[in-house]
């Protein structure tokens, strides 16, 4: 029996597709269910849609946004489709972005048309987290188009405008850049990777 199990394990080793790799064991994966509840207070349920982000997808994202992707962005990623009693309400993705100290995990929500609805940090070691999550920042970013979000993610001068308008410390900038990069990449991923699934949900 032991030998059979080892043969099974060996077979599975050769069947594994490299692009699904995840740096940590899968038992560590967590869904951002509590933050989904904060971003969609009327939600009734949600479902996960997993896709493999390989080299072609990363190249497409980088081309669409002009933003560089970290090697750890390869692999399987989840998009959460959020529903209320009336049907599909929007989408959520957990994005990992490198900020001033370490990786920030940002939970980003969009409506059904991929427009930014809001965001929360799930993990952030910066003392400026609350400032970056402030309502005034969220409201400002919600009014921006995809192209404007990308421009702001790429250009520090554009971000200074938000920081001045919201009377924030300039040290919020790394977090703001992370948020903008995350939103821009999520919107691009929804078109490049999850377009079929999103269309099916809308029908």
């Amino acid at each position: 029996m032991k030998r059979s199990l080892f043969i099974l394990l060996t077979a599975l080793v050769f069947m594994a597709p490299a692009e699904q790799s995840c740096g940590q064991a899968f038992c560590a994966l967590r869904d951002p269910n509590r933050i989904i509840g904060e971003l969609f207070p009327d939600f009734s349920q949600f479902k996960s849609i997993t896709a493999i982000i390989g080299k072609p997808e990363v190249e497409a994202i980088e081309k669409a946004t002009g933003l560089k992707c970290d090697p750890r962005e390869f692999g399987s990623h989840r998009l959460y489709a959020v529903f209320n009693e009336g049907g599909l309400e929007g989408f959520v993705q957990s994005r990992s972005e490198i900020v001033d100290w370490g990786i920030a995990e940002i939970i980003i929500a969009t409506d059904t048309k991929s427009n930014l609805k809001g965001f929360r940090f799930q993990r952030c070691r910066s003392r400026y987290r609350e400032a970056a999550e402030a309502d005034i920042v969220q409201e400002f970013l919600k009014r921006l188009s995809s192209d404007e979000l990308i421009s702001m993610a790429r250009d520090e001068k554009f971000r200074e405008a938000i920081i001045e308008q919201a009377s924030l410390s300039k040290k919020v900038d790394p977090l703001l850049k992370g948020i903008l990069s995350g939103v821009a990449k999520m919107q691009a991923l929804m078109q490049v990777v999850w377009d079929d699934e999103i269309a099916a949900l809308g029908n």
């Binding site: 080793v13 899968f26 349920q45 949600f46 479902k47 996960s48």
Partner: peptide, 20 residues
Amino acid sequence: VGFDAYTKITSAERDWATIV
């Protein structure tokens, strides 16, 4: 040497279970 798998049992609008 290990095999590490993860999946969810999902319906049209909901995840029902997570399997590791």
